[in-house]
Design a binder for these strands. Structure first.
Lengths: 247, 247
DNA sequence: TCAATTATTGACGCCTCGTCAAAAAGTGCA
DNA sequence: TGCACTTTTTGACGAGGCGTCAATAATTGA
């Protein structure tokens, strides 16, 4: 029994090893560039062994995405635990998004991959569920802040929206800007010099638009954001470190 | 000379034929599923001939993206030509985005492909420039509405933003929501039942947040949107038809 | 009509994925 | 320890994709 467990741990260890080898390849050369032969040779195992751990290339990518999404979720959870009005916690989530994009770019890119239908389709339902769970968890964290704001009479949700649909707008603006920032060949060429600042301004404006109390001018918002970052960034970094140690 | 021109036209015709064959494959089976052999056999030409028209698979995808982005640009131009206050024209652009996502889903998916770095890299600078031009043109259309609003004293741009950065927020929220809608496996499962309505509400809120006159309640916004759609949708459809006839 | 140019073809080299029979390693019992 | 049985690893293999290029076919122009 003990023997069996040790073997299982051995297998588990190697699974993580595979991911550790695959991740930099995926990031540097994309899904195309990631090849099973290459992973195998770099691990000094035969290809068949890799296929004992993952039934196909797509599963490896999804497994990597799970790791990356867990980091995001941890950043979110950290942000939500800040003490203060709901709006401040909402801003802390914005800070987490910004941190994730700017300092965990690799993880962001991996997350991107799984939005590709052909990759998603070929992976197991089980791992798909892990992703969905993580996504649902992230949504839950943000939505509960929204609900709390309503409860505290700091926000009224428009009647045609659910709390989650209100979150969706912030999700979309953050996610969209991240994608555009990293994939649009030359934003400065079309007049966008500081996309991160732009999104901060837009989020502040959107919060104000919903009359989410306390209303803030952009300068106040930036000031508050600075303080939030001072508090949270060390914790964000430590969460990021943790992830890389675990894997 | 006339003879030469006829030959060139013949070549041009076949280039378009290739795109017409490739598009449905790309849409149905993704970049992976699109194979040069398949395009060739479906066209009843040898593979080498296809390579006379496009140096690689990626170029075909970019060419398809150019077509799709031109449709988007045409929808945008149509929207911008509406008569009325800048805010109404801005809303008309939102309507164009919604139309593009809902009724030109294929084009939207093709547009998506080129955000993939490995595809982008392998294509010619020339075609990359076509894309950039189109993107720049779209941006120009929207930014000029923003500037017009400022000129008409209907809007004050926050001092840390350029007109383009203001547009960027709307771009991000629309683009982000489109991607999430089409790639997130089950939005309803996490509480997002009507993403299109949600984004309309968010856009209205954002416009209001910037104090873009005339301020509108969500109900007014929806009413105005309905009218805009009644006017524009027939034109949108005709632009879409045109595209498919040309190709 | 025929040489010169241009276009087309598809077999080829190289690569990748995922499989599977055979070989190797590990296990447990006498 | 020796030996039969199970599990794991291996890498050659089939199928199929990309992009090339020498050979073939078609076209042109004199």
């Amino acid at each position: 029994m003990v023997e069996l467990t040790r073997k299982q741990r051995e297998i588990e260890r190697r699974t993580l090893e595979i991911l550790r080898v695959a991740r930099p390849i995926l990031i540097a050369e994309g899904f195309q560039g990631l090849s099973m032969d290459r992973v195998a040779s770099q691990m000094e195992y035969a290809k068949g062994t890799i296929y004992n751990h993952f039934p196909n290339k797509e599963e490896i990518v999804l497994a990597l995405a799970v790791e990356s999404m867990e980091l995001r979720r941890n950043l979110f959870a950290q942000s939500a635990s800040v003490v203060g009005p709901a709006r401040i916690r909402m801003m802390a989530l914005g800070a987490a998004c910004e941190f994730f994009t700017q300092h965990c770019t690799d993880d962001f890119l991996v997350e991107q991959c799984i939005r590709n239908q052909s990759i998603w389709e070929k992976s197991s339902e089980q791992r798909q569920n892990l992703i969905r769970q993580c996504e649902g968890h992230c949504m839950g964290i943000v939505a509960s802040i929204v609900r709390d704001a309503v409860f505290q009479n700091e926000l009224v949700i428009p009647e045609t929206l659910t709390a989650e649909e209100l979150v969706f707008g912030f999700w979309a603006i953050n996610y969209g800007s991240q994608i555009l920032t990293y994939s649009s060949p030359s934003l400065p060429a079309i007049g966008i010099n500081d996309p991160f600042n732009a999104i901060r301004v837009h989020c502040c404006t959107l919060l104000n638009g919903f009359a989410w109390q306390p209303i803030m001018m952009h300068s106040e918002y930036n000031e508050a954001m600075k303080q939030i970052n001072e508090t949270l960034q060390p914790k964000f970094w430590s969460l990021k470190e943790q992830q890389h140690t675990v894997n």
